[in-house]
Design a protein around this nucleic acid. Structure first.
Lengths: 370, 370
DNA sequence: TCGCTTGCCGAAACCGGTTTCGGAAACAAC
DNA sequence: GTTGTTTCCGAAACCGGTTTCGGCAAGCGA
């Protein structure tokens, strides 16, 4: 012990833990036998194994993960590195997501080690540190990009991981994802069914894989229903209210304005609300909006936002389970799951009150008047 | 190895780690000596210690926390258990807070173990599990209550902890807190200065310690400026937009309505916005509002919300540092820090446009008209 | 010169597990 | 009755550290 350091708080008051030695003594077995019995080695008789398991339960024995780790190299901990910039730290689903992750992890008596990094580069460094220090047996990678350096790193280091989302090159990747492309497609079909013939699109964050998928879902659904894909009413990327509003203004100002907009994110949709209001129009009647995410603000907005809701808690739970199976050695190809977003029908979409031409007419009158 | 289990993913590709044995060999010392040198034992000559430290740096040696833990019982991990209910999972500051925690922790090469629980009772169970399994050396306790069972548990088990907030019985507690009472007081003074004579209050969550403090800050400031404390214009608890709106309506409907409202939470303030608008009044002119928290929605609301902003990232960082010092043995009494919230002057407060009487008159006309 | 500290380090036990190895006992085959 | 095979368990090494203990050599005082 250090000479003049204060005495560390120890917490000795808690009852002494049952170790594998106590268990072995109580059973009259060697600790090696007990260990093998508990770990399913084939050279233990079923009778003995049964005795050991029962006694372990009775005495409340559970091995210390970090003591096991010294030999096995695995600490029974999942890792996640959140990239949190200066002020983009708005994450409506973070709590739900973490709840799912930790619930599923602790059900298997694993834990979650959480770290953060301000930039992508620092995230890589942080991951390396966690790996080197064996703090984590594998990673959950949120916000996957089409070309994601984190994946490259983990592949190179042969560290297990699972994606929240998909990615450009799926080799060696396990994942859970919501089929955003299907959602966007469904939105288009629904709007077309209701009579819309000019349906615009506001895309997601640049570089993220989900953006590519949703955009493609939009495009191919247009094709399926026989509508033209027109870059004039498509905004590549809009992920904040401001960007959504700007994009909304721009698309509405075009020569053939959209009577409906499909948005890859709710935030963008809320921006569209602003642009529509500014133009003296009404969302849900004059311009329909269907978005994606399910943020709480959408339910409070006027009109309430029709959107595809993602169950973040479920996603977290699935990801934790997948990662644990991956760490245990299952092949990544067998660990790819997807689910559908749930359409929350609310009030921001409806049959068009006018055609694109009428809308343009109306808009030009409004602007000249102002 | 289990007979028919798949081969666990090992990550052997990563370069072999430098262990204390490698270091000892390279130095021609015994590993015990190396260990003592690195841990500041007094029976190592300065020359040797220096050699060891330099070589450790050169070879990139860092001890494995879990290997140390087997002997020391400490894993260099901070713990936090977030209570996340079914759908109250709206936590605007969670990401920032976690960023602060993990940044400060990793600066000392500690990590964060995160868990969640749906209820308080389950949180206690989860904490016990983390303690029993030695996953954590101490806890950060968010959302402290006046009488907090988590504190009782950790006190009984003699496990180090630090509060984010204060509590009823401070015995043995270390904490970091923002002086919410000062903020509420300042709000009252400011409003009084501007000419308000009827200043109402919307309190925070029931049972939480911050609610008591902020309420008391409001009350004593009223006294200090010579205004009456009137339960008629005080709502004990309002923490959602809905509750805030309901409280706003109730207070405004009274015989002597407030011309200004101090809110313990921004959410309540946004509810007040709604109530004021419904009454045909304007926030910032007819009714002033000053709140507390600094949620992003406040800056986007109309009018922009004047509020006391809390730096969650800073709080996380301070808490991590305090907890580490606590675990290292410093006395809790020496680990109590506070800071002030930062007043963001925006547009929701101003001189009263009318007196309480005039306001009542105006309101009664409005309601009869409707 | 002798004994007694003191400074400094090596050796070994130890923490709580896992894993390898070898061998006794039971069983089967010849 | 031998001689293999299995079955099943104990013993011991091992993982990567920490901590205790003992002892050598240098320094000191008498």
């Amino acid at each position: 012990m250090l000479a003049d350091a204060p005495e560390p708080v120890r917490g000795d008051a808690r009852t002494v833990r049952v170790t594998i030695n106590h268990l072995a003594d109580a059973l009259g077995l060697s600790k090696g036998t007990v260990s093998r019995a508990l770990n399913g080695y084939p050279d233990i008789s079923e009778i003995t194994r049964h005795r050991v398991v029962r006694m372990a339960e009775r005495m409340g024995y559970a091995p210390l993960a970090h003591a096991q780790a010294i030999r096995t190299g695995r600490v029974r901990a999942l890792g996640i590195v959140l990239q949190i910039g200066e002020h983009d730290a708005q994450r409506p689903f973070l709590a739900e997501f973490l709840a799912g992750l930790t619930a599923a992890a602790s059900a298997e008596s694993w834990t979650l080690t959480l770290a953060t990094a301000p930039t992508e580069a620092e995230a890589l460094v942080t991951m390396r540190r966690l790996i080197d220090e064996r703090k984590t047996d594998g990673f959950i990678l949120p916000r996957t990009k089409v070309d994601d350096p984190r994946i490259a790193l983990l592949r190179a280091l042969d560290v297990p991981f699972v994606l929240w989302g998909r990615t450009g090159d799926p080799t060696g990747c396990a994942w859970f994802d919501i089929l955003g492309e299907d959602a966007m497609g469904e939105a288009v079909m629904r709007l077309q069914d209701m009579g819309h013939r000019r349906i615009g699109y506001l895309g997601g964050g640049r570089g993220f894989n989900y953006s590519v998928l949703r955009h493609e879902g939009y495009r191919s659904a247009l094709e399926a229903v026989g509508l033209e894909y027109d870059p004039e009413i498509v905004c590549e990327s809009a992920v904040t209210v401001e960007e959504g509003a700007a994009a909304g203004r721009r698309l509405l100002a075009g020569p053939r304005p959209p009577t409906a907009l499909v948005c890859a994110t709710d935030m963008a949709a809320l921006g569209v609300y602003r642009a529509v209001a500014e133009a003296g129009l009404e969302v849900g009647r004059d311009v329909s909006v269907i978005a994606y995410d399910g943020i709480p603000e959408g339910a409070y907005a006027t009109p309430q936002l029709t959107t595809f809701e993602v169950d973040s808690r479920e996603a977290g739970a699935r990801l934790a389970q997948l990662l644990i199976r991956r760490i245990r050695g299952e092949a990544p190809e067998d660990l790819r799951e997807t689910a559908h977003a749930r359409l929350r029908l609310r009030a921001s979409d409806g049959p068009p009150s006018m055609t694109s031409e009428e809308l343009r007419e109306r808009l030009s009158r409004a602007t000249t008047r102002v």
